[in-house]
Structures are given as structure tokens and as C-alpha cells.
């Protein structure tokens, strides 16, 4: 299952997650975000070793600014609190999955 992120749980989620943490930066007005949302949900169920969180940038402007998000959907993969990969736009489930697997080594 994916976790709804906000200012109070974001840092804990990205630093204390064992394995990888994938964060999906999204907003309600963003069409491609709506397309990606179910794909992200499916991956959260299918993949092990990765925790998936979603951050609504409209309600969490400060976090979006802190991570210099300028486009949505943006995906960031965290490992021990560090951003190890970052990319934006819609993509197939397969591509997103491979991007995560690459970080799992």
C-alpha cells in the first residue's frame, strides 16, 4: 500500500524506511499524475523492498520547494534519506519498475 505523505511524516518515511522509498509528487489538477497513480499503487503491492509514498504538492508546497520539484508527476527514489534517482512525467509500469530495480542493484 502507498502512504499519504505530509510535512509530519515525510522525513521519517524517507530516512527510516529499510530498503528504498519511492515518492510520487502529484497534484489533483495534473492529468498525467492521475494516470500514474494506479500504476504506483500496483507497484507498491507487487514489489518488495520498496515503500511507496505520495505527496500532494498543493498541500505541501514547502516540501515540493525543498526538493526543487518543478514538474509533476515527479518521482524520487530515496535510499537512507538520500535521493538516488529523480525523474518526471508519465511512463509505463514496466519503465517505472525497472527504474526502481536499478537502484535495488
Amino acid at each position: 500500500m502507498s502512504v499519504e505523505l505530509n510535512a509530519s511524516n515525510f522525513d521519517q518515511f524517507t530516512t527510516e524506511t529499510s530498503g528504498l522509498a519511492l515518492v510520487d509528487f502529484w497534484a489533483p489538477w495534473c492529468g498525467p499524475c492521475k494516470v500514474m497513480s494506479p500504476i504506483v499503487d500496483e507497484l507498491s503491492k507487487e514489489m518488495s523492498g520498496v515503500s511507496v509514498g505520495k505527496l500532494n504538492v498543493d498541500e505541501n508546497v514547502e516540501l515540493a520547494t525543498r526538493y526543487n520539484v518543478l514538474s509533476i508527476p515527479t518521482f524520487m527514489i530515496f535510499k537512507g534519506g538520500q535521493v538516488v534517482d529523480q525523474f518526471a512525467g508519465s511512463m509505463s509500469k514496466q519503465v517505472l519498475k525497472e527504474r526502481i530495480e536499478k537502484q535495488q542493484g
Binding site: 497534484a27 489538477w29 495534473c30 492529468g31 498525467p32 499524475c33 504538492v57 498543493d58 515540493a64 526543487n68 520539484v69 518543478l70 514538474s71 509533476i72 508527476p73 515527479t74 529523480q86 525523474f87 518526471a88 512525467g89
Partner: peptide
């Protein structure tokens, strides 16, 4: 995704 945008309605907000 770092200022170059393919979707004005998505990214105008930033």
C-alpha cells in the same frame, strides 16, 4: 522536469 515542461497545466503552479 527541471524547468523545461511538457505540460503547462501540470507545472504552472511551480
Amino acid at each position: 522536469g527541471k524547468g523545461v515542461s511538457a505540460c503547462a497545466t501540470c507545472d504552472g503552479f511551480f
